[in-house]
Design a protein around this nucleic acid. Structure first.
Lengths: 153, 153
DNA sequence: CGTTATATCGGTTAAAATAATCGATATAGA
DNA sequence: TCTATATCGATTATTTTAACCGATATAACG
């Protein structure tokens, strides 16, 4: 479950499989399990809870002032299907991804890629209005590709 | 009108503004106006004609064995709106784009970009599984970006 | 005041869906 | 062979969608 879409709903199902919880508790638990690397926003959790309710994968315990959510049998089945599709430990894998995404190395790399792409965009525009520069650009990219190939070995 | 979607329909409207035509004639005219750089496929033209008919931007002349399409007043209005949005000569601009896209320079550049992107994809996977190499990758990209900035001046 | 608890909003981003186009193929008539 | 019409499924590019983010709000309790 590496994709952004649906991840929070999967995470909620995992948590509720362990024990019933308040929405706020879910938010806090996600933050806790990520060692603070992820702050779940209410804007993410509550709509996800709403959708899981509509699907009846989770339900609310009755007659309480505070909303406690629990997982249904249908929700457990869905979760089982998710587990089939993904190997490894859900939480550990997630944390590993978060650690990477919050690392200094990743942040620098991301910035470098963005800057590169911006400059590439300008270069493509330049080539479009000045086609003579295309050959130079091809040569440059070919050289860079070769260097990267060596590094990729 | 640089986008792929809708271009053929705009081109058909332009042609029919000049004179009524058969579908096949439209195909041939497009090929002719591009000096053979573009071969309009029937798979493109006939569905486009069908859609323009449904919108009643064009109509069929009546009682003929062979289908001759002509532009309606509504079609002329739509064409006028298109003209407002784009400066320059429709056909000349198109041909210029085709010449560029069929040029040796463009083809080489496109290949170079594709190969670069493929190698970048591998590099990103490598970094993901070996985060120590991220700093090296960032440095590489930063160097490339600087070189490209100089060329973009 | 901070924490627990619930909720909504609009903008951004990433993913999904859509459909235009391509290229191949077919039929028919001269 | 050329003129003329049409369809198909895969690929590609574009558009649409909606999940998520971050901000904000309300309320109750200690």
């Amino acid at each position: 479950m590496k994709k952004r879409r649906g991840f929070i709903k999967a995470a909620i199902l995992h948590l509720l499989k362990e024990e019933s919880m308040h929405g706020y508790q879910i938010m806090k638990e996600l933050e806790s399990r990520s060692d603070g690397l992820y702050s779940a926003s209410a804007g993410t959790v509550y709509p996800a809870l709403q959708e899981l309710l509509e699907k009846e994968w989770i339900k609310l315990e009755s007659d309480l002032e505070k909303k406690i959510y629990f997982i249904t049998d249908e929700g457990k089945e869905r979760l089982k299907e998710l587990r089939k599709r993904e190997e490894g430990d859900f939480w550990a894998d997630w944390k590993e991804r978060l650690i990477w995404r919050n690392s200094e190395e990743f942040i620098q790399l991301k910035t470098a890629v963005e800057q590169w792409e911006e400059e590439m965009h300008k270069a493509m525009k330049r080539v479009r209005s000045n086609p003579e520069s295309a050959a130079e650009m091809s040569a440059f990219l070919t050289e860079m590709t070769e260097r990267l190939k060596i590094a990729n070995k």
